[in-house]
Design a protein around this nucleic acid. Sequence first.
DNA 1: ATCTACCCCTAATCTATGTTAAGCCTGTTT
DNA 2: AAACAGGCTTAACATAGATTAGGGGTAGAT
Lengths: 194, 194
Amino acid sequence: MVIELPLIEHFKNYLPLNEEEIKLLEPRVSQRKLKRRQMILQEGLVCRYYTFVVEGCLKMYGVDNKGVEHNLQFAAENEWIADLGSFHSDKPSKLFIEAIEPSLILQIEKQDLYFLYRSIPKLDRIFKVIIENKFIELQNRVLQNISSTAQERYQSFLELYPKLALRLPNTQIASYLGITPEFLSKIRSERKTG
Amino acid sequence: MVIELPLIEHFKNYLPLNEEEIKLLEPRVSQRKLKRRQMILQEGLVCRYYTFVVEGCLKMYGVDNKGVEHNLQFAAENEWIADLGSFHSDKPSKLFIEAIEPSLILQIEKQDLYFLYRSIPKLDRIFKVIIENKFIELQNRVLQNISSTAQERYQSFLELYPKLALRLPNTQIASYLGITPEFLSKIRSERKTG
DNA sequence: ATCTACCCCTAATCTATGTTAAGCCTGTTT
DNA sequence: AAACAGGCTTAACATAGATTAGGGGTAGAT
């Protein structure tokens, strides 16, 4: 049972790793099962892991001073999730990461990842491309946020993440879009009528 | 007159380049002077350059169907700007990049950048770190956008970019925050009174 | 010196979105 | 079966932010 197989497959989409490289990777990847609602990062703690989702779905969110959650990111199969700011700076995070569904994840600790960057140069390339793609996605989201109505943002969400939209409760989607569940409900009913 | 000196200094903040590497870089960097309002990218065209600002300030923005501009990013001294989505995919951009002040920039074309990535592996590392930092910034901005009031977003902008806030007209800041200039004006007057 | 373009501000009115409160389902616990 | 919690909806009312219109200031262009 090679636990990191899905990860190796994932890297293959960018650049394939050879046998030696895989041997370096193996002992530095650990596997975890998460129950629904289980957290792997809480506000005030340092984000110690770069997390890869094999199965299930996680969310990262912040909580405002009124106690309301705001979803920054979802991560389903074959996606990465981490509070990069906290991870690299070792400063306490202001975010939470939590399983929305029972999930299977792979994690790499910071020192291990840094070691891997040094010993497998192509990982710099791979993660550069991964993060560039996430950057582009995020930039589109910012543009939407500053230029579009909630209605339009919801529409785009459905088009961009059709599978996720079916898996997630609407409360989670509303939190991601930056609106209340009540208002999302109104939007949805207007869409059917109009 | 070594035009790419500011760029070499910039890279030094991450990893210093040696003589050989600098010689590879030199012939692939071109310099341009821009007048106020001059554009280096327009909607419908492919983004061909990764642009580094030596002096001055540029903005990247989208235009909605009512003709209103929405500022996605500013780039002042020692910052990079490009529509990465268009740059890597060769698809037409939906964005504009324009000089807000008379500016001096350095540009690298896609094929040259790819060549440099291949011949100077540490550039993968350098740009990975650069983009990671921009990703973290952008993620904070998204969290603000979905969780904070315009008042709070303006306050954060002033704290995060104090120098930029002095250089930019308020219309540009409003466009970045996702509000109208009129509403920014109201916010500003309330701040003094309150 | 005088235009012109741009920028900033104010105020009245309008609209998108939030708040509060209530009711209905469905699935789960007791 | 009853009780309960979570998620979805609706509706009345409240507020953040947009729109429209107008006036004044300043710098660059002529």
